[in-house]
Design a protein around this nucleic acid. Structure first.
Ligand SMILES: O=c1ccn([C@H]2C[C@H](O)[C@@H](COP(=O)(O)OP(=O)(O)OP(=O)(O)O)O2)c(=O)[nH]1
Ligand SMILES: [Mg+2]
Length: 493
DNA sequence: CGCCAGTGTTT
DNA sequence: AAACAC
DNA sequence: GGCG
């Protein structure tokens, strides 16, 4: 019953390109009302002409993040001129049988906080994940028969793919490749066929095909197309500045900045204190910390803490507790028996004051003292006398009744934490830095009731999750370091 | 087709 | 809500 | 991109 065909003269550019039953259905409705549907924007259509709407981007999936919308359109933000609206604009227009003004439906992809006076560029990403290293282009010599460590070529290219996706904030794809890599590492034989590949856990059709492609051509088409432009190298340098992530790095790049010197020269005024310190200590914080120096930090901080409160305890966590030979930073937990968070915050505040006075703490990146409120976390730069570098040091104060969960969290590594937390989810539980909880239905599905099961004791949390205890050294999961452990580890999950 | 860990802090 | 960090 |  297409009566007026209100969208007769309108072209919808649909996001996302991917289909699903629901989306197909909704698009049918759009067509019935006369809309022309397209999936990419021809150059000449990318403009607004007056108030009359003839071309418009319609986002059908409300959950899409702004950056994902842009990626789907394959548009650089600065070049997108068309209005972008959510699907309510369409459906309410249909109800009212008219083309509505976009006000109230428009999704603004660009500005958010006009920082000082800079401009355009926005949209953002998913969650987590750390820096990546740059790696040079591919091409391994074609070694025909026996690969001594099996599947080396395959692993090489899949790693490049994973890195590529991580750099472009496609975190789930990146994660998929990492899981496949782990899986292949645990494979004793040389994979030769699609059938062998697809049997492996975390290797599906797409990855199996890619594996075959690698075996046959010794390369991957997709990797060569994926422009390995100099841009990524610059972005990686920028993103290593503390306080600078993908968003800021990209913004700077589009403003024409290419080196740290460019940034210092042109942006210094506009930088946050965080980023200024990040620049100032860029070289220092790029250095690994020898384990022996970690011991010295431990002694030093422990002494200082003892003076403030002899009952307070200092523990080094992170990679140090996992037995690393070198660390990227130093992670402290400060705690005290039978003590609540408030008192501990006070201890941290005094400790920090002393450490600053003594010259150990060089700068606070995230302070104890912000706006009168005392925080339970401190990120800072700190240097021991007669040592060559300022180090990144993190303090976390933890009330004694959360100490087990906090140890678990702050010992890591990150991959181990995520595995363990996933296991909790699968058991209907939730594990966080404050405890292991049972998640119950409270009537309101948005705010389920969380009942604390355990938070004081690390070992009890392992038991409740039906896991064998692992010494911290056995928690170096995933990645490329110490995979001897992660082989067994992966099997356990 | 939804999930892929969960939290603290700042803007 | 986004950005950045652990 | 894989999985339940
Ligand atoms: O996204 C994150 C980051 C960190 N952590 C936990 C695990 C990690 O082990 C600990 C300390 O973080 P840090 O970044 O210091 O990692 P690390 O394991 O100590 O390694 P590095 O030697 O780089 O400091 O905090 C998480 O749970 N999730
Ligand atoms: Mg650390």
């Amino acid at each position: 019953m297409p009566q007026h065909q209100i969208f007769r003269d309108v072209t919808f550019y649909i996001v996302p390109k991917t289909n699903s039953k629901l989306l197909v259905h909704r698009k049918e409705i759009f067509k019935r009302h006369g809309a022309t549907l397209r999936y990419s924007i021809p150059l000449e259509s990318n403009r607004r002409n007056g108030t009359k709407i003839t071309n418009i981007v319609v986002v059908l999936d409300e959950k899409l993040k702004k950056e994902e919308i842009l990626r789907d359109l394959q548009m650089e933000l600065s070049t997108l001129l068309l209005p972008v609206v959510n699907s309510a604009w369409v459906s309410e227009g249909i109800e009212k049988n008219t083309i509505l003004p976009v006000d109230g439906y428009e999704i603004f992809l660009s500005p958010k906080i006009p920082n000082k006076r800079t401009l355009k560029r926005n949209a953002q990403d998913e969650n987590d994940q750390k820096k990546t290293k740059l790696e040079s282009q591919n091409k391994l010599e074609s070694q025909e028969k026996p690969e001594v460590p099996p599947n080396q070529r395959i692993l090489h290219f899949l790693k490049l793919m994973s890195d590529e996706y991580e750099k472009t904030n496609q975190t789930w794809k990146s994660q998929s490749y990492r899981k496949a890599i782990e899986s292949i590492k645990n494979t004793a034989f040389n994979i030769r066929t699609y059938e062998q590949a697809i049997k492996l856990p975390h290797v599906g059709k797409s990855l199996a095909s890619k594996i075959v492609e690698i075996l046959q051509t010794n390369s991957l088409k997709q990797l060569q197309t994926v422009q390995r432009d100099p841009k990524l190298i610059v972005l990686a340098i920028f993103e290593k500045i503390f306080g600078v992530g993908t968003h800021t790095a990209e913004k700077w790049y589009y403003e024409g900045l290419r080196t740290l010197e460019d940034v210092k020269a042109e942006k210094y005024m506009g930088l946050s204190d965080l980023q200024k310190y990040g620049l100032q200590y860029y070289d220092d914080w790029s250095q690994r910390i020898p384990r022996v120096e970690g011991e010295k930090h431990d002694q030093y901080v422990r002494m200082a803490c003892h003076k403030i409160d002899p009952q307070a305890e200092v523990h080094i966590m992170g990679s140090y507790r996992r037995g690393a030979a070198t660390m990227g930073d130093i992670d402290f937990i400060i705690t005290k028996k039978e003590t609540k968070i408030l008192e501990l915050k006070g201890i941290l505040r005094r400790l920090v004051a002393d450490l600053e006075k003594s010259g150990y703490i060089k700068c606070q990146l995230r302070g104890v003292e912000k706006r009168g409120e005392i925080k339970s976390k401190l990120f800072c730069g700190a240097q021991l006398a007669n040592y060559p570098f300022c180090r990144r040091v993190d303090f976390l104060v933890v009330p004694s009744d959360e100490i087990g969960a906090a140890f678990l969290y702050f010992t890591g590594n990150t991959t181990f934490n995520r595995h363990m937390r996933q296991r909790a989810i699968d058991m209907g539980l939730k594990l966080s830095n404050s405890g292991l909880y049972r998640v119950e239905d409270s009537g309101d599905p948005n705010t389920p009731r969380e009942v604390l099961l355990e938070s004081k004791d690390e070992r009890t949390i392992f038991k409740l999750l039906n896991m064998e205890w692992r010494d911290p050294v056995e928690r170096n999961f995933g990645g490329f370091e110490e995979e001897g452990k992660s082989v067994k580890a992966a099997g356990d999950f």
